[in-house]
Design a protein around this nucleic acid. Structure first.
Lengths: 241, 241
DNA sequence: GAGTGGTCTAGACCACACT
DNA sequence: GTGTGGTCTAGACCACTCC
């Protein structure tokens, strides 16, 4: 091993694997080396590698598939699409496809509050995206999204409109930014006139305000997303344990 | 082992330990036998017991403490109080104690919708509790709580008023009902006149509606809780991963 | 020092997927 | 069959808590 070390071996291995994920040695969707190979590379037993990977799997950084291998998690997979979207239709049969409508995509000086949480220097540029999520023809979510401009050069409304699937899939494949985890602050607010028009509801209608801060490797914040959800026919689902 | 078995050994061990938790062989807050003892009892290796306990710890059914033992999780502990309450003050310094005000506690025929989700027979009695949670003098949460009457005989407003600490602590110590996990459906709604008065807000104010269904061992539903949260100075916090 | 959970190893065998 | 992850074992040693 050789590195300085005051933590359990498997935690060091986990950190090494995480680093390889971060640097892109293995790309999203690809298989990482087998447990035996990694054990040989790091000169530890297979059991130690296994425990490291167990934790990475628990954190959704990798996905194990028996008989096939261990794969780098991705937001682009059909099955786990919209991993972070907790909105569920009341009528569960009405699953339906989600349509995305880009309203705006522009590069601007980051406002102070955005700059602070994204850890930008004052004057740095940010990308602002406004969009609607439309379920079965009804606009249900209005999102106001902020990204650091430096990491998302070349992101335009056209690119967004072309892309099929969740934004996080695009961020991952086109900009190499993988969203790992997020924190949400949820409140109840009244729709103002402009949002009411976009969501096709009366002004003053109670909406769910979902302010999300998303992080990539190393707990680096890379997205602020302010969502307003119409919860007349959908609800935000949460599990407590 | 001897028992019928088509699942991994450690899953069977986990089920056996869960059963002992359920029957009350070890009470909340107490230590369960050491890994070595359990391994001897079940005639498996310590590693297998360890893996079973690992999962129980991940599900918050037990808590491991190095050098001391493994303990049955409890809602009554000071440190983890209000484990299921996700409401956080905007001003993090204003942590403060939470005051509970019982408004009502009565036994009634379970309404059809409650009976259905609690899996009661039509005509079975239910306990209904209405209460406020007061943060720093301000009422912030109104809860309308429903419990199956059979499991909560002797639950009165007086007992509730006397008890210090979270309801789930009382349910656990007085009625032997441990809440293991819960599902919440969250929406944004307008305050009606009566709730507005209780929460000291104008009628029509947007409130967070949190409908919780709580489960005990064996995924048995044992509580419906309809909460209305004033999110002017607090927010509902969630972690996505 | 004795007892507990936590780490690490090495080896055996099982379940599953591809070919 | 070969290779992958998944299970199970047995034993050694470490870290922490309490006496």
């Amino acid at each position: 091993m050789g590195g300085p070390a005051f933590s359990p071996l498997y935690q060091q291995i986990k950190a090494l694997i995480t680093r390889s994920l971060q640097t892109g040695e293995w790309k999203p969707g690809e298989a990482i080396p087998s447990e035996m190979e990694l054990a040989a590379r790091f000169k530890v037993s297979q059991g130690t590698v296994r425990k490291a990977i167990d934790e990475l799997a628990a954190e959704n950084l990798v996905v194990r598939r028996q008989g096939k291998g261990t794969f780098v998690a991705t937001h682009a997979e059909e099955k786990i699409q919209y991993r972070f979207l907790r909105l569920v239709p009341d009528d569960e049969r009405a699953e339906g496809r989600i349509e995305r409508r880009i309203l705006e995509c522009r590069r601007v000086r980051a406002p102070a509050d955005i700059a602070r949480v994204l850890e930008l220097k004052s004057g740095d540029t940010a990308v602002q995206i406004r969009r609607l999520l439309v379920f079965a023809g009804q606009p249900v979510v209005f999102d106001d999204i902020w990204l650091p401009g430096a990491a998302f050069k070349g992101l335009t409304a056209e690119r967004l409109a072309e892309y099929r699937g969740p934004l996080y899939g695009l961020f991952e494949s086109e900009f190499g930014v993988r969203m790992i985890r997020a924190e949400e602050k949820i409140r109840s607010v009244a729709a103002d006139v402009s949002v009411a028009a976009l969501l096709d509801v009366p002004a003053g209608m109670p909406l769910l305000s979902v302010e999300r801060l998303s992080f990539t490797y190393g707990d680096k914040p890379v997205e602020v997303r302010r969502g307003l959800y119409n919860t007349q026919a959908h609800y935000y689902r949460n599990e407590l344990s």
